[in-house]
Design a protein around this nucleic acid. Structure first.
Lengths: 256, 256
DNA sequence: AACCAACTCTGTCATTTGACATAGCACAGG
DNA sequence: CCTGTGCTATGTCAAATGACAGAGTTGGTT
């Protein structure tokens, strides 16, 4: 399953490229000031590209890079010694990858591309320099960390309190909502290839039960989830069904 | 269940007190430098004391304070509209509370004291000042956030992949290990009052099933968990049983 | 002593979820 | 056209977990 890190190729790009950063057009992201963008341009190392299934880094490794997702969707998952796998979360454009390596500890999870994806690459060794010289970015990192924590909480609520149908619905709502926020689902349908096995590993269900539950949700017209796309006919109804309180964050997400 | 915030009383204390901070003797914590400690002394507002069951802040609120746990154990939990409750995590001395309010969003959870506890209080409005002027503290906050994320991941793995017995064992190991690290369990036994209902709400099990599983673990001599204490006769065996890879972090935890 | 509240423990039965085996379907490659 | 691969779908049975009801225990209060 796990290939090694050499998958992608680091493309050295001039700082100029930051002015045309693919994240600029996202109106749901808060854009860094021009000076800040120049600083980031000097700070970044380049870009990496990954195809579906390629691994960015493995659990237990100490990557020397930090990343921001520029395009595509990735997932991070944790493996148990006996082969069980738990998918922790999915990552969308603007998300920051590798906080753990930034503070110099082993990664507790692996990250793998779910669609083809490009990442913006930073040097881990210069992380403290970032914190020391750019309080705004430091604050933004804290913002991202706090919101990631909140997303994990929501996932914990799903796994601990919701039944299979509610979990499926909650996950679908989460993914589609994030896709809408990052312009990946213009018409409310997210084109992404996720197998039922992956869904099962995310939600703590067996593959078979995931399959049956998915069919039930289709019958109920709540979620239409196929191998290659996720559709939610009635978002409000789905939120209601999943028991999501649904307050979107007031502030737009920052990114680095 | 939930009382309001006025529970504790803010005690204004001179910065002097930081030199005798109760966290100083913890050899598993990394101590701030003398200058840093002086800065923190000027930054802090005072201390608050909470008794078991008192609520520090509620879900959906926007507290104007941030906290560091000086003594005691607290828990944070998330409530669903229909009354279900999911306990997210427990918090021990040195832990930082309220990152979300630091970046100005509503708290997605409530925090409540499990034992009597004292908290060190900071002003939310001055958080950016902290980030801007104290890169070391900013880095430390990132450290704490990254490790909290890792703890939540572990919890997700429990809920998603482990059966009831493994979950109980994993939780017991986690709590006792953290208690040992913070000198709360000198002899390897943690004296803390946690009801089986609370355990159930943490692990996503019914109260009854929690009870039976607890008894099974006692019979197996793996975990001896009563209303008022948690004991683990053979830590290695318990870790093994729960499927915990068990690499403790190399670096000691920082605190603010 | 009597009472009450908050827990823990037990029994019985229902529901959810998992395990295993197998069939069908789409697609890529020779 | 055949074949292999990876995925989805179904049937049957077993195991894990939950729901409900009630009894036992402990500690505090009057």
């Amino acid at each position: 399953m796990a290939r090694e890190d050499e998958a992608g190729l680091l493309v050295q790009v001039g700082g100029k490229r930051c002015a045309q950063c693919p994240l600029v057009p996202y109106e749901r992201l808060s854009q860094p000031s021009p000076e800040l963008r120049r600083w980031i341009a000097a700070f970044r190392q380049g870009e990496m590209r990954y195809d579906r299934g390629e691994v960015v880094f493995t659990q237990g490794s100490r990557p020397r890079q930090l990343y921001t997702v520029l395009s595509g969707i990735l997932m991070r998952s944790r493996l148990l010694e006996d082969g069980r796998r738990q998918i922790i979360n999915f990552m969308f454009p603007g998300d920051f990858i590798g906080l753990q390596s930034a503070v110099d500890s082993e990664m507790s999870h692996e990250v793998e591309a779910v669609t083809s994806a490009t990442l913006c690459v930073f040097a881990r060794e210069r992380f403290f320099e970032l914190v020391a010289s750019q309080p705004q970015l430091s604050f933004d990192l804290t913002w991202l960390a706090a919101h990631e924590e909140s997303a994990l909480e929501e996932h914990i609520v799903s796994l601990g309190q919701r039944n299979a149908r509610e979990r499926l619905a909650a996950l679908a709502v989460f993914l589609v909502q994030r896709a809408i926020d990052t312009r990946l689902a213009p018409d409310g349908v997210l084109a992404i290839t996720i197998t039922q096995g992956q869904i099962a590993d995310m939600l703590g269900l067996s593959l078979v039960h995931t399959n049956r539950t998915l069919q039930a949700l289709r019958r109920l017209q709540l979620v239409d989830w196929t191998l290659t796309s996720i559709g939610i006919p009635d978002m409000a109804a789905a939120r209601q069904f999943a028991g999501i309180d649904g307050v979107a964050s007031a502030r737009p997400r920052p990114y680095i």
